[in-house]
Simulated assay, not measured.
Amino acid sequence: MAKKRKVVDAKRDKNGNITDVLLEGNKNFTSTEKALGMTKSGLIDLVVVKRKDKEHLRTRPDGKKGNNLDEMADD
């Protein structure tokens, strides 16, 4: 199986929600909607978390704060 792609950056909207992620080796950001499907297919090294009726993407828990999507999206 191919190595899962890593997320190296993220963008958020004016409400603070993560909207896009940048995959290692890419120049353009990928929407979180597309990244969600790619994660479910095992292509991206993220975790899908279901809360109420919505699914979210998260980085794998490793005790490091700097590689969390919210931290990557800081201005």
Score class of each variant (00 low, 15 high):
Met1Gly: 15
Met1Asn: 12
Ala2Met: 15
Lys3Ser: 15
Lys3Tyr: 01
Lys3Pro: 10
Lys4Phe: 10
Lys4Tyr: 09
Lys4Gln: 13
Arg5Asp: 04
Lys6Pro: 03
Lys6Asn: 13
Lys6Trp: 08
Val7Asn: 05
Val7Ser: 10
Val7Leu: 07
Val7Tyr: 07
Val7Ala: 05
Asp9Gly: 11
Asp9Tyr: 07
Asp9Ile: 11
Ala10Met: 10
Ala10Leu: 05
Ala10Lys: 01
Lys11Arg: 15
Lys11Ser: 08
Arg12Trp: 15
Arg12Asp: 14
Asp13His: 15
Asp13Met: 11
Lys14Leu: 14
Lys14Asn: 14
Lys14Ser: 11
Asn15Val: 07
Gly16Glu: 11
Asn17Gln: 08
Asn17Phe: 12
Asn17Gly: 07
Ile18Asn: 05
Ile18Lys: 05
Ile18Thr: 13
Thr19Asp: 00
Asp20Gly: 08
Asp20Arg: 06
Val21Lys: 06
Val21Ile: 15
Val21Ala: 04
Val21Gly: 05
Leu22Lys: 10
Leu22Glu: 09
Leu22Ala: 03
Leu23Ala: 05
Glu24Tyr: 08
Glu24Lys: 02
Glu24Leu: 10
Gly25Cys: 13
Asn26Cys: 02
Lys27Tyr: 11
Asn28Phe: 08
Asn28Glu: 13
Phe29Glu: 10
Phe29Arg: 04
Phe29Thr: 02
Thr30Arg: 02
Thr30Asn: 06
Ser31His: 04
Ser31Phe: 05
Ser31Ile: 04
Thr32Met: 04
Glu33Leu: 08
Glu33His: 02
Glu33Ala: 03
Lys34Gln: 10
Ala35Thr: 07
Gly37Asn: 13
Gly37Glu: 11
Gly37Ser: 02
Gly37Gln: 08
Gly37Arg: 06
Met38Val: 09
Met38Trp: 14
Met38Lys: 12
Thr39Cys: 06
Thr39Ile: 02
Lys40Trp: 02
Lys40His: 06
Ser41His: 07
Ser41Thr: 04
Gly42Tyr: 12
Gly42Pro: 07
Leu43Asp: 15
Leu43Phe: 14
Leu43His: 14
Leu43Glu: 15
Ile44Thr: 13
Ile44Phe: 10
Ile44Met: 13
Ile44Lys: 06
Asp45Trp: 04
Asp45Val: 01
Leu46Met: 14
Leu46Ser: 11
Leu46Gln: 12
Val48Phe: 09
Val48Ile: 09
Val49His: 10
Lys50Asp: 13
Lys50Met: 11
Lys50Ala: 12
Arg51Phe: 06
Arg51Tyr: 00
Lys52Asn: 07
Lys52Cys: 07
Asp53His: 01
Asp53Ala: 14
Lys54Glu: 05
Lys54Gly: 01
Glu55Met: 04
Glu55Ile: 08
Glu55Phe: 03
His56Glu: 11
His56Pro: 01
His56Lys: 13
Leu57Met: 05
Leu57Arg: 01
Leu57Gly: 04
Leu57Pro: 04
Arg58Thr: 07
Arg58Gln: 13
Thr59Met: 01
Arg60Ala: 12
Arg60Ile: 07
Pro61Phe: 09
Pro61Gln: 13
Pro61Leu: 11
Asp62Val: 03
Asp62Leu: 03
Gly63Glu: 09
Gly63Trp: 08
Lys64Arg: 00
Lys64His: 10
Lys65Pro: 00
Lys65Tyr: 12
Gly66Cys: 14
Gly66Met: 12
Asn67Met: 02
Asn67Arg: 05
Asn68Pro: 00
Asn68His: 05
Leu69Val: 11
Asp70Glu: 12
Glu71Val: 12
Glu71Leu: 05
Met72Pro: 00
Met72Ser: 00
Ala73Val: 03
Ala73Trp: 02
Asp75Leu: 02
Asp75Met: 01
